[in-house]
Every structure is written in C-alpha cells, then in structure tokens.
Design a protein around this nucleic acid. Structure first.
Lengths: 352, 352
DNA sequence: TTGAAAGCGGTACCAG
DNA sequence: CTGGTACCGCTTTCAA
C-alpha cells in the first residue's frame, strides 16, 4: 500500500511545480525564462513560492537537449608536468563562467588519452574545446578526421598545419633572441645553454633561437657551450651538465636553462661550487613559475604567457560559438623576459 | 528549392543511422548498448558501417536525460592561491574517468562564488561534488540548506559540524607535533614559528600544534618566538618577521614557517644575513610544494597529502553514488614530515 | 530478431 | 494571459 520512501527525494520537475501551483507547465516555463511581463502578480508569486517550497531547479540536461546547447567548454590539459598549464584554469574558468559557460575538464597523459578525451568531450556535446598541449611531437591525424560537426577548437602550444583550428603559439625563438640581446648588452660573450628534451618542439625552438641570437651578435656557436638540461629527468643530469660548463676554461659567464626547474638545479650546482650568482655567473630560466621569486637569488626568466593564452583561447572560442566570427585565428604570443636578481654583467676581466 | 548548406553539418542522430542502415532506432540502440548477441551478423555490420560513415556519436545529453544520470562529478576549487589544490586535479580526473565519470570544474574566489558554483553544479545534475576548500572561516549555512535531492559531497579541508557530508581533513596539529618531536630529538630548544594569516583555520591549528609540542617537551612558549608569516601578503612582511627572530639573543635555532612560501622568504633572509642553513639555523616549511626540492638547500617540510585527499574524495563519492555505501565518512589524513637539507642539529654551544 | 511507441524534463508554437 | 502539444535524441518496454 504505502510506497517505500526514497532515500533521497526525487528531484522536483516542472510538472510538479505546475501541478502544485495550479498552472500549466508553459506558465512555469515562462517564469523560468523571465517572460513575466504579461503575467498576473498573483500567478507569478504563487509559482515562485512553489519553486521555493519544492526546492525546484530546472534540469539543464533537459534544457540542453531541447535547446541543442550545453553551454559547456571542454578543456584538455596535456602538459601535466608543469603546474603552469593547470594554473591557466584559474583564468579560463572564471572567464568562461562569466560568459555563462561551464568547464568540462580532461587530462591527457598520452596520445591515446588525448583521443579518448576528445571523443568524450564530443559525446558530451561541448560547444568548444581548449587544448592546452605539450610541445611534444605528435601525430595530429585524428584531429583532422574530426567530423565537420565538431565544435570550434583552440589549440594552445600545439604545432599543426591545419588552419582550421584556432592556434595560440608561444614565441620560443623570439624569447631566446631577446635573452641573448639582453645578455650581450650586459657584456656577456660566453653564453651557454642547457637545452631541453629532444622530444619537445620547444627545446628545438629555443636551441634555434639561441643559435640565431649568437649569430646575430657575431658570437661563435660552440658545441661545448651546450649541454642537456632535461626537466623531465632527475635533476642529477642537469647538475652534471652544469658542472661540465663550470669546468670549461674560460668559463661561460651566463647560462640559459631550458626551463626554470633546470635553472634551479644549475643555480644550486653553481652555488655549491662556491660561485656567486650573478657576480660570477648569470643564470636565466624559462617559464616564470611562481617559485622563481622564492629562489635566492630570485630568478631572471622568460615568461610563458599561459594565462594570456588561456584568456585568448576562451575569447576566440566564444567569438566563434556565438557566430561573431566564422574563421579560425592563429597567433603567436611573445614571451617577455622578466629580469630579477640572477642576472647581471659578467665578472670584470672575463674577456678571453 | 535548394536549402542553404549549413556551415557546420548537423550532428547525425540515431534516426539518421536507423534510416541509412534500413533498421529501426531500437536496433541501433541495441548496438550502441552492446546488446548484439541475438543479432544478425549482417545487420550488425551494416549498422556499424553506417555509424562510421555518418561519424555518428550518441548524444550523452539525451542519454543523461532518459537514464537520469550524467556520469559527471563536480569539482570546486576554492584554494586558488596555492597550486597544490589544482594539482589534485591530476589525480582526481583520471581516477574519475576510469570509473566513467567526467569532471565539471568550478573555481571559487569568494563565498558568493562558492554558492554560485554549487548551484550551477546542481543544475547540471552532477552526481557528486568534491569541494577543495580553503581553510578560511566561512559560513556554511547554505550547504545545510541544500535540498535532500542534492548529490553526495566530499569536503576536503573544510570544517563543518555536519556529518551529512563526507569530509577529509588534514591533521595540522599532529603535523606540528611531529615537527617539534623531530626538532627536539635533534637537540633544538629554541624553536620559533612564523604563523599564518589569522583568517585561516589552518594557521590556528598549526599554532596550537606548535604550543602543544613545546609543552610536551617542557619547553616554554615565548611570545617573541612567534611572528607573522602570511603567505597571502607580500614577502616583505615575512622577511621582517624573520629578521626580528634573527635579532633575538639568544637566537632561535629553528624556524617553522607557516608554509613553504614563507619558509623560502625566511631562508633568503637568513642567507642574506650571512647565516648558513642548516648549520646555523634550521628552517622547516609546510605544504611540500614541488619547488621545495629546487631551493638551496632543499626544504624540509610537512607534506599536505592533497593528492591522497583527492583520491579518497573520488573513492568516497563513487562508493556513495553507486549505492555501495550509504553513510558519509569523516577522516583526517596525517601529514608526513619530509626531511631534506634545510634541517639539522642546532649549532654546538647553542645552549643558553 | 526487429519495430512501434511512450516518456525522460524541458521549450516553443499555436489556440483560445 | 494561459494551456495544450509536438518535439529535442535516446532508452526501454511490449508486440509482432
């Protein structure tokens, strides 16, 4: 006779509200969508009261189905090694929400993960996808095979020849050029580079920028002024590389590390060898992690404008989703040099 | 006569597949849900082929509506000041996905943001909510007013008297006790503390642990051995506080900072005053940010097991969502001390 | 083995 | 001003 009480109450639906308020679902729907101009004060109040009493919340699932819009943006974070990319969520989410979009998050640790994540987001009918990528060299084929019904995408830091996608790149080459300009201006002539892992495009680009910068200032590129500085590997390797550079004679007066983590390892190695930064040797990183200001001395570094990239990704997507702009956009963000304490002029008498 | 071509093709629906394959939607649905045992090889193949050709993907929105399940977990990240909590997403998301749940992400910068985020997630019909909280003292009223139809929640690091919620706490008091045990064991007698912002429960708890630890070892709590170390404020303040401690006579032989960021500021101040860490003075932090290993010396610190907390939150929620467990669980995670280079015995002859 | 039809929770059109 | 109703894309009886 008596039905067993549900453990958790069933969600109230629009029908419940209509019934309890003694009106039709249409009228309730009108209230929900703020079409209340031509409505009796009394009816409106009664409906609102019923909504409150039933603790009714419209189902956005049902709404999505009928409106054919989920108001959701998918974000795939591939670069999980550096917290930097996750930090971008701190800008992306509020920005998206202020435009009434939600964020559906996926992480991708591998290429397969990535495909799976994209499929998932498509099934969930996200209206746009932001892809925060590693610069690993990968196969883009599956991106090209996406159906034409796929939502707009914004790729951050991913090389692809397809201008069908919005793309936001970081100017690694330009950044290294600027660093070398800065160092040469200070008087440095022997500038070393701890280069990143070969699997990453960014490593190549920075190395290229390094060589271009030297050339620009008529400095010789010397094989022995470069050594591996892989931030994915244990720090031991970077320390070894740094020692190798320190043992050169004459010693380099500046070291540009592949990234801040390697720069920190280099700093530690240099300090333990009894040398002072920047008096004896300058150290410069790349990334501008928050911890750069915690180091002693604070680290001069190239900032990767990830926050800015995230912002632009959201804006580009929203412009496309709202139909404000039809075509995709490719842009490259410049990476400013943030000068702190770890850089300065070379020691006097350091000329060969 | 000819309809204008849509810019982006309409998504294929189950009807399209049924029509093109010459079967009914039911049959297609059966294929989608792997009820293919009693099906003609031929039919199955034809349907699969049609799905491939049309690039059909079932709409999870429609599925959610009829199944009354979104397979989505909401995550609210309130502690945006420390990247630590965002990092938890790196465990939460894969874990959730492997159980076939997606992550809908919200950030909350304020109490209002928080409410808004919760409402949003409820409308989106998430099946569980993970709340990565700041330890700020806040008003929980709105949580208590959630309808009984609200999904299970897991609060990480949020004080509330409601055992209606799953709760995962961090044992700040125990952590400080362990630090003091460790320091006393090393021979320290004058142990200072840079305490965190008054707005945070964790600050109070750590201060309490500090006092309890001193008491336990019959050490006097001295007002002047404590000074503010607010990681939300500019580092200048923490540096001032550190200098104040260094100028005491006799000088403390160890400083426990409110967190790693303050510890870094303290280390820098100490080193610039010409003292050596840990030979002259020990420094210990709290949080175990990745950057602890980049400092020189590497920082001894108390680890906040955020990753573990995230894991447990997911597991607790899933157990409840699947009906495996009905009641909520409260637990406190212990915070292990990670000993690195910044701590050691006090300088000899440091006894009063 | 396959198909027809009801219904999930809303929206929107058209009547009255 | 309000109500009836078709429909969004899919699942799930129930029949054939």
């Amino acid at each position: 006779m008596s039905k067993v009480q549900q453990k958790t109450a069933r969600r109230a639906t629009i029908k419940d509200v209509a019934r309890d308020a003694g009106v039709s679902v249409t009228t309730v729907s009108n209230v929900l969508n703020e079409r209340t101009e031509a409505m009796t004060e009394e009816t409106l109040r009664r409906i609102q009261e019923t909504i409150r009493v039933l603790n009714y919340r419209p189902s956005s699932v049902a709404r999505s189905l009928v409106n054919n819009s989920t108001a959701t943006i998918g974000v795939i974070v591939a670069e999980i090694h550096t917290p930097l990319f996750l930090q971008a969520l701190n800008t992306i989410e509020p920005l998206a929400r202020s435009a009434n979009y939600n964020i559906l998050l996926s992480t991708a640790r591998s290429h397969d993960d990535e495909r799976q994540a994209v499929n998932l987001l498509l099934e969930k009918q996200v209206e746009g996808i932001i892809f925060l990528c590693t610069s690993a060299y990968v196969d883009d084929d599956y991106l090209l095979q996406l159906p034409s019904s796929a939502p707009p995408m914004a790729l951050v830091n991913r090389a692809t020849t397809q201008d069908r996608f919005n793309q936001i790149h970081l100017d690694n080459v330009g950044a290294m050029l600027a660093v070398i300009d800065y160092l040469v201006e200070l008087g440095h002539r022997r500038i070393a580079h701890l280069y990143g892992p070969a699997s990453r495009r960014s490593s190549d680009e920075r190395l290229r920028g390094y060589r271009l910068g030297l050339k620009k200032h008529n400095l010789l590129y010397r094989e022995n002024h470069t050594a591996p500085g892989d931030y994915l590997a244990p720090p031991k390797a970077s320390e070894q590389s740094t020692l190798k550079l320190l043992n050169l004679s004459p010693r380099p007066t500046a070291i540009i590390a592949a990234d801040d983590i390697v720069a920190a390892a280099a700093m530690r190695t240099i300090q333990r060898a009894g040398l002072k930064i920047p008096q004896d040797i300058t150290v410069i990183g790349v990334d501008d992690h928050p911890f750069c200001t915690y180091l002693n001395p604070t680290l001069t570094t190239v900032q990767l404008p990830i926050t800015q990239a995230g912002e632009q990704a959201v804006e580009l997507l929203i412009a496309q989703m709202t139909g404000e702009r039809a075509t995709s956009v490719q842009k490259t963000l410049s990476c400013p040099l943030i000068v702190r304490e770890s850089s300065g002029p070379p020691p006097s008498g350091s000329e060969e």
